[in-house]
Design a protein around this nucleic acid. Structure first.
Length: 261
DNA sequence: AAGAAACGCAACCGCGTTTTG
DNA sequence: ACAAAACGCGGTTGCGTTTCT
């Protein structure tokens, strides 16, 4: 158990829209102490907000270099491509779009790009939330194959320099959604290495029989973690190279159904 | 002109993962 | 090894603004 820094009596935390004064306090605090340690930020900044709220406000609004302008066509294109590759991994997508936040991209996707993708014209499609939800359900249940990025935790064997157990049978997209287990981790490692080998040997990108293309998920690859070890750095570099490769080569998750986008 | 509907953005919530004592 | 705290993410909601009828 950790020493809770709180210990304070129950104080009603502020919610809702941030005021300019709060923004100033938060900005000053982060500038002084740096990002991170969000549990300390409300106290240090003198804000009556929860840590989550502070973090969110900083990440989505106050952080320097945030691009609050309109999305241009290049960005649209990149988002569409990355979404095909990564699915709703907004933070990963945001990592490829300098100045854009995951929240921005998510909102933009939900309000613009999804419609664009669905081919529904902006006009006259007056629909209430209910029908939007039905439509959403139809899409997810439809034959669009949602990419299932593989997740490799820091505890993965190759990061721990443990022996990798080879398992030749490839995991399916469904498998990747299943709960992780040690055998899964071992399989992940073998699969990844095989696939990476193939990739680096300039062989064809392997899409599994569900049409899902694998991608790496470094978790927070766009963030700097000074504590990570060399293997992790290598893995993250590989992830970035791979994303660049896929984007440059125009590689998507190819659906098994021609009717799909 | 006014009310309704849709849009767009900011913020909140819940949950899985990671860290720490 | 375990439990609690903290972190980070994606989904959802709330609300002000804009557009439509």
């Amino acid at each position: 158990m950790r020493t809770g820094s709180s210990g304070s009596a129950a104080v009603v935390l502020r919610k809702g829209a941030w005021t300019e004064e709060e923004d100033i306090l938060l900005r000053k605090c982060v500038e002084k102490y740096g990002e991170g340690k969000w549990h300390q930020v409300p106290f240090k900044a003198g804000l009556n907000r929860c840590r989550k709220s502070c973090r969110l406000r900083w990440l989505n609004y106050l952080r320097p270099n945030i691009n609050r302008g309109k999305f241009n066509s290049d960005e649209d294109d990149l988002i569409l491509r990355l979404h095909k590759l990564l699915g709703n991994r907004w933070s990963l997508i945001a990592g490829r779009l300098p100045g854009r936040t995951a929240n921005d991209i998510k909102n933009y996707w939900n309000s613009h790009l999804q419609k664009k993708l669905n081919g529904s014209s902006k006009n006259k499609n007056k629909k209430n939330n209910k029908s939007q939800k039905i439509k959403k359900a139809m899409i997810t249940n439809n034959n669009i194959i949602k990419p299932q990025p593989r997740t490799f935790s820091k505890n993965a064997p190759w990061l721990r320099a443990k022996q990798v157990i080879h398992n030749p049978s490839p995991a399916t997209a469904q498998d990747s959604a299943a709960p992780k287990s040690q055998s899964m981790a071992a399989q992940d490692s073998a699969d990844m290495m095989t696939w990476l080998d193939n990739l680096l040997n300039d062989e064809q990108i392997i899409s599994n029989d569900q049409g899902a293309i694998w991608s790496f998920n470094g978790g927070s690859s766009s963030e700097i973690n000074p504590g990570r070890d060399q293997n992790e750095d290598i893995l993250i570099n590989q992830e970035n190279d791979l994303l660049d490769f896929c984007i440059d080569a125009d590689i998507w998750a190819i659906s098994s159904s021609p009717a799909n986008i």
